[in-house]
Write a protein that binds this DNA or RNA. Structure first.
Lengths: 233, 233
DNA sequence: ACTTGAGTGTGCGCTACCGAACATACCGAA
DNA sequence: TTCGGTATGTTCGGTAGCGCACACTCAAGT
């Protein structure tokens, strides 16, 4: 992967060639490994990341062991949101949920570039809007819908971002995303498997029937998707 | 209330006199009544609002009857966030939760002013950061903590914003905020009343013991407060 | 003063999920 | 090939909150 693969990131792809020249030169390709921690709550943000084919999760926690995913960042956006809002400190934990490539940039040069690159600003602010909508809708979903529907929604959202039907992750991991116990995930996964919507083996899960999963999930999946489409016109 | 009361809004108060001249002239004082709807999801934003002593709730819903408050906007911020992110459409429903005064501005002139007023932009972006943190933390809180703790947190957050120890609202209303049934609120309220932390009569609730409420609430209250302080330096 | 309706209190059976403990199955390293 | 650790499956008692039904009570209007 080189910085010329920027087309893979939908924010970067939208920057006109003229404005991209300087930005592209400062972007550095990196490979992000599973479970790698990019930000910690209360800590400084050192880099911003533009995912190409990886997936980043934003997590909030209420104590050591209970965490909840509030947002997902794939190739449609950027990780490091606080930075574009003028804050250098992350409010959430960000971890790599799907390994893969990204382009990154150190925060100091990014600030300079961000200030002088209007198309970049516009695209990122609109993305922030979509992310906020995602966070809000997911919040309601996590409050009102049961584990099975939420798991279905989560798998669909992940699929949209990694463009693949199977991914590497354990029930334990999913539990942290959905704010359930590991056993709760097992139960929900079994239910979806018996409906022949998914299959899985240790540390790996595969979607078999997208339409079926949509039916099993709640309307929150579509609701978030609609807002993303609107924000990207 | 006149536009000269801008000091009551912490965003406006931060704009230097020079940059405020034009902005202030375009702001219009309005009185917002209880339960008034300011935005509907998917609908255009016609005005942005700077609360002076009123309180606005941002709500997400998963169906007709189940709603959840994802954010609160008091005199520390502004309602109409999507607008400063380049979108003219609200993702949430916004309703007036505490009656009172605000300064408002039509969206078209606001866009112009926003573009040319750097201090205003900076202040609002930082506020957006705080609001996102609030939304995220509240999401986790609503997932993990029980009704009693969440009610305590909610009352404290409201108190901080309206600067008063008693407010007008029914159990029914609180149920929509916290994503509980009306009966669930009654139950939680009774518990807090028996601890002598609050009292209430029909449609009215009063905080008796702030410290006690803090103890009864979860750490989410403090967590959100910390981020707000950080964002306002 | 009486009525009416909104706001609040209470009980009941039910479901989703929790915490804990333990059983089984798989995979990779020695 | 065996072993050890990690991933998954299963059970059990307990709890928060649900939907529903209904009783009570306060305040405001005729």
């Amino acid at each position: 992967m080189t910085t010329e693969d920027r087309a893979a990131n939908r924010v970067l792809a939208k920057i006109p060639r003229k404005e991209y020249a300087r930005l592209g030169a400062a972007l550095e390709p990196v490979y992000l490994d599973l479970s790698q921690v990019l930000y910690e709550p209360g800590k400084a943000i050192r880099y911003v990341y533009f995912p190409l084919d990886c997936l980043i999760s934003l997590l909030t926690s209420v104590d050591k062991r209970r965490t909840l995913e509030v947002g997902m960042v794939g190739n449609e956006g950027m990780a490091g949101m606080p930075f574009i809002l003028g804050m250098g400190i992350s409010g959430v934990r960000a971890i790599v949920q799907g390994r893969g490539n990204a382009l990154r940039m150190a925060s100091a040069p990014f600030r300079v570039e961000f200030d002088r690159n209007r198309p970049l600003r516009d695209a990122l602010y609109r993305y922030t809007y979509a992310l906020m909508a995602q966070i809000s809708q997911t919040a309601a979903c996590n409050r009102f819908h049961d584990g099975e529907a939420r798991l279905a929604r989560w798998l669909l959202m992940t699929r949209d971002r990694v463009k693949s039907d199977d991914f590497s992750l354990t029930h334990e991991f999913l539990a942290h995303m959905l704010g359930l116990r590991r056993e709760g995930i097992t139960e929900a996964a079994i239910a979806l498997k018996e409906l022949e919507l998914i299959t899985y083996t240790r540390g790996r899960i595969r979607i078999l029937n997208v339409k079926g999963l949509m039916a099993a999930s709640c309307t929150c999946y579509q609701a978030v998707k609609t807002v993303y489409d609107r924000a990207q016109r």
